Computed example of a mutant assay.
Amino acid sequence: MTLADTGQRRASAPADARRRVVLVVASTAAVLLVLLASLAFGSRAVSLGEILDGLGSWFRGIVPEDIGAIAVQQRIPRTVLALVAGAALALSGALMQAITRNPIADPGILGVNTGAALFVVCGIAFLGITSVFQFLGLALAGAALTAVFVYVVGSVGAGGATPIKLALAGAATTAALSSLVSAVLLPRVAAMNEFRFWQVGGVGGATWETMAIIVPLLAIAALAAFLAAPALNALALGDDVAVGLGIRVGPTRALAAAAGVVLCAAVTAVAGPIAFVGLMVPHVVRLLTGPDQRWILPFSAVGGAVLLTAADTLGRVIGSPGEVEAGIVTAFLGAPVLVVIARRTRMRAL
């Protein structure tokens, strides 16, 4: 490294610090904005005073008399679930992109969402499952088995698990599993009616009971992801370099993959297979923060929370007096983003 390079790095350090401070402030403001919007808008718009009244009554554990405040209280669980689910999906996508060194990897494209959905469908059709615990267990099993299958298939042949092979294996697996989902549902009208609303993906069915089940699991997986961030930076340099830096490549990749699968499967169990959040958010965050996973992971979580909450709010506004599910809105937003990423990416390591 020359003296000029050292000087450039020292000069860029304050600029990077300022940019990250701006991102922290902007992210905090965005979370507060979408939170207020989610509480304010729906089939009935409410004022700021009604929001404060509803929140105050909720904290005190009483039911307000004003209908606007009542509407605010009813929107609190879905707002919290949208924030938590969006953060988990984006964090899962960031982990999968880091593990596979593939900028278009996410739980949907790699088939993890579909694997979880298939197991839930089989549980509904053949076992008659109804509880969140059962949904969660089947979703975790389906997501984990699908992730392992895609990685094994993508590792076959020369070069091992390259980004392009993993993407193709995930796409093929998703298509096959989607066909199996249809095959299970078509002859079973009752199961189809129960599944079709869940399949779209949304947070309208949020309850405190379901969140009490998944939030501890999500918190443990998120903690594991953040602890793995420095090692993921080393993995981005290649396995040989990572080993030379003292990183245990296999356990690190397994820990990050397990965290990503748990984050995705837990959300899928309660909100359905919501697509594109894990693809869009980490890609945009990487453009803003650079390649350091210690910044990509937390900012992806914040960005995912903002995106899914905004999508849920937008779906309620444009579908009023009904609603358009958040999964439809994120798919509508995500398809053009996927096209742009595919055009700008040469399928090389991040």
Rank of each mutant, 00 (worst) to 15 (best):
A158F: 06
A143V: 06
N193T: 08
T162D: 06
V150E: 05
S182I: 06
L91I: 06
G137F: 12
A87P: 12
N102I: 04
A147C: 13
Q134K: 01
I109M: 11
E194Q: 15
A183F: 15
A98H: 07
L140K: 05
G170F: 03
V132G: 03
A190M: 11
C122M: 15
S182T: 12
V148A: 14
A144D: 00
G137I: 03
R101Q: 14
S178V: 00
V153G: 01
L168T: 02
I104M: 15
G115A: 03
N193P: 00
Q199A: 15
T207Y: 12
A167G: 13
A88C: 15
G170I: 00
G170R: 04
L217Y: 12
F195A: 15
K165A: 08
F135L: 15
G111S: 11
T130C: 07
N113W: 07
C122Q: 14
A176D: 00
V189S: 10
W208M: 11
F149M: 15
V150H: 04
G159D: 12
I99E: 13
V120N: 08
A98R: 06
V203F: 12
F135I: 02
G115V: 06
A206P: 09
A183V: 09
A175S: 13
A116P: 06
L168M: 13
L89G: 10
D106S: 07
T146W: 05
M211H: 11
A117G: 08
V152Q: 01
A171T: 06
A94K: 12
L168Q: 01
G201Y: 05
A147I: 05
Y151D: 10
V153K: 10
A144S: 13
M192E: 06
N102F: 04
L186D: 09
V112T: 10
L145Q: 00
T173A: 13
L138C: 13
A172E: 00
I129L: 13
T207R: 11
G142H: 03
V203T: 15
N102K: 08
G157S: 11
A171E: 01
F197N: 00
Q97S: 06
L186G: 02
L145T: 10
V153Q: 03
P216W: 06
V150C: 09
V181M: 14
L91S: 11
G142S: 06
F149W: 12
V184R: 03
A172S: 15
L166Y: 05
L185T: 07
L168P: 01
V148S: 11
I104N: 04
G111Y: 05
